[in-house]
Every structure is written in C-alpha cells, then in structure tokens.
Simulated assay, not measured.
Amino acid sequence: MTPASHGVHAANPTPLSVEQLRPAPKVMLHDHLDGGLRPATIIDLAAAVGHELPATEVDALARWFAESADSGSLERYLETFAHTVGVMQTAEALTRVARECAEDLAADGVVYAEIRYAPELHLQRGLSLEEVVAAVAAGFEQGEAASGGRIVVRHLLTAMRQAASGPQIAELAIAWRDRGVVGFDIAGPEDGFPPTRFLDAFEYLRRENFHFTIHAGEGFGLPSIWEAVQWCGADRLGHGVRIVDDITVAPDGTPRLGRLASYVRDKRIPLEMCPSSNVQTGAASSLAEHPLRLLASLRFRVTVNPDNRLMSRTTLSDEFALVSDAFGYGWKEVEWLTVNAMKSAFLPYDERYRMITETIKPWYAERLGR
C-alpha cells in the first residue's frame, strides 16, 4: 500500500483551525516541564525568591521568551531556561508548575502526556533529587485530579549531556518507575556531547527493562542519530529531524533511503518532531520545508509535539494547526499522527491499546464519518 493511499499526501483544502483542533484527543511525547511555564507564574515565583527577570509584565515576559528563543541557534534557545529553572527551586514551585502544566494540557485536549525534566537542575536551594521528583509527581497528580480524569500525565527523567549524572538519574528513574516515571532521556547540546557518553546508563536501563528516548538529530546530524540508535539502543528519538540527511530525492521525485534511515523506518523508531521549535533552533529552515511531511509520506513513525510551549508560544493544537496549514493535513492525518504517538508512548501495551480504541479512534471516526 502506498503512502498516498493512507491519506498522508492528501491535501485538505481548508486547514484545520486551533479552535477545531483543541477538543480533539491528542498525545504529547516531547514537552519540557521547564519550557512550559505560564508567564504569570514565572513572575509570581521570581518575586518570592528574588530572581531577577528581563520583564515583569505578563505579555512583555512572554514576548521576551519567544523572541529570545527565535534565534536559529539551539545554544541560544537553551539560554532562556535560566529564568524558568531559576524559579523552579522549591518543592512548592515545582508542584505548582507541574499542576498547571497538567491543567493547561488538559484544557488543550491532550489526553496523554509524557513530560520531561532534569532533576539535577532543581537542587540550588537544597532539594534532593528524590524531593524534586516527589514535588513534580504531586503536581501532576493534582492536575490530573483537577481535569476530572481527562488527562494522564507521566514523567521522563532527563540527564544533562554536559554533566556526568547519567547513572544517578537512571537509577532515580528506576526507583520511581512504579510511581509515574515511565522513561529516561538525555538533553542539552548535542555537538561535543555524544550520547555514547551515557552508555553505562543506557546499559543499566536495558538490564532493568526500562524505556528511554534520546535527543538526537536536532543540533547535530546523522552521527548523533546513529550513536543513539546503534550504540545506545534508543526506543525513540527526540526530534530526529536530521534523519532526512540520509534520504535523497531523485529528479523524478522518487525518494531513496540510506541504510540508517531505512533502519529507523523499518524498526518503527518513533520521531518526536517539534515543528515550531525545530524552526526556531535552525534544525529546519522553515515550516514549509520541515522534513515532517516527507518522513510522514514515507511512513516513518512521525509524531507532533510542542517541545517548549513557553519559548515557542505554542500548544499542541497550535502545532497541528501549523502542519495542517503547511501540508494540507486534515482529520485523517491528525488521527494518524496521534495514533503514532499513542503507539509510541512508554505506557504498558494494554493501556495504550485502550486509549487508542476507547478515546482516540472513536472521536476521529465521528469526524471522518466512519
């Protein structure tokens, strides 16, 4: 069966709007807790701890984050986190941020979310790693309860590439595996900090039958993806945009996949793509040129995510509206991308299957007249 016959190439004459997309059940695999704070919350928390901000009015602060992140540089993009992480140094602050995160996602129609954060970044005021995870867990539980069961939120614990805490964070993730933590991640600058620096952590996680994703193919190219997949054994790729460098398109439009791209596709390794963020950091030259469309047409396991909702001034509904407008995607494509994400979640199979068959597919079936 060809990609076009699945509807991924089909042009939708009228792009879907954010308002149409918001009630649709959506699944989020790549979103950073410290990249999704409400600007008003940052101002409140900064005042409480004496953290100096570049702006103290809500709209001005939101604008500062978006403009600072819109630089075309991953390194500059990451600098904006000094202000969000700076106010997330107490248990009360972490719980509030996590609670509001769950509430905001539920209001956007997200039914399942995996939110990642680096516990090692929240120790400046004396919290332990365990206390950081406990505070975030409390916030997610409060947010789930406030949503009336409309959303399930799980954690991914992240180790920073430029640090040496991989084994410690991996052990922390295992300690919390039955209390909301479903996976491990590494993040931070790719160039100069290859994933193989964390081989001992990944080997430990595999021995423990645990899941992990790796930021790869965003700020660096194919070698980063190759190491993440072949040396480290990543279950998913965070971004993975540069896998397109292993695909050539002949003059007649026929795509040819290199060995790495073929392997990633054949193994159904999910790509956690974040369109707006990828353009901001320079991983994609523009939304219109984003590799998502080509990769989706070739039936890679593509998913759509916001990455950092504050820095990109976005939501998951916004991201779907953008790709709908850029690529002519309609409900059929949004459903395909959503099911891709749910299939790729680090939940047990029966929970994923139930959410697909009882929550996601019935809603889209009604829109598609099935």
Rank of each mutant, 00 (worst) to 15 (best):
F193A: 03
E289Q: 15
W336F: 13
E57D: 14
V302A: 13
A173Q: 06
A326H: 07
G238M: 12
A91L: 02
A135F: 05
V182H: 10
E19R: 12
H51D: 01
H211S: 11
L271A: 03
F202S: 06
P255A: 12
R293L: 11
A326N: 10
S277V: 07
T359P: 00
L156Q: 09
A163V: 05
D200R: 15
I225R: 09
R259Y: 03
L16P: 07
E144A: 10
R116F: 14
G221N: 07
A187V: 03
F198P: 00
F320Q: 03
L123R: 13
I225D: 05
L322S: 07
L172K: 03
S5A: 14
R125P: 01
R63D: 13
W231G: 01
I169E: 03
E75P: 00
A66T: 12
E57F: 02
L199G: 08
E141D: 14
S285W: 08
E366S: 13
E272S: 05
P223D: 12
D44Y: 00
R236N: 03
A106E: 11
A40Y: 02
A345Y: 12
Q230I: 05
D44I: 00
P119I: 08
N340L: 01
L298M: 15
R265T: 03
V181P: 01
F210Q: 02
A93C: 04
A145P: 02
H51I: 02
T314M: 04
R313K: 13
A46H: 11
K267C: 08
L156W: 08
R242P: 00
P39V: 11
S17V: 06
G330H: 10
N278K: 04
A93N: 05
V136L: 05
H239W: 11
T90F: 05
L156K: 01
H215R: 07
L287Q: 08
F193T: 07
V323G: 04
S5C: 02
A82V: 14
L347N: 03
T80D: 01
H215L: 04
E366W: 09
T314S: 15
S317N: 05
A106H: 08
I356G: 01
A163I: 02
G369T: 08
T359M: 05
M1W: 08
S344D: 10
R207H: 06
Q142K: 15
N209R: 14
L199H: 14
K26T: 04
A93E: 05
L16C: 11
Y204E: 03
P362A: 11
E319I: 02
A341R: 04
V111K: 10
Y353C: 03
V8C: 10
L222T: 11
R293D: 15
R161S: 10
R116I: 04
A46K: 13
Q20G: 02
G109D: 10
R96M: 06
V302S: 13
A40H: 07
Q89V: 06
P23W: 13
E218W: 09
Y353D: 12
V87I: 14
T95Y: 00
L368P: 01
L121F: 12
S344C: 04
D245L: 06
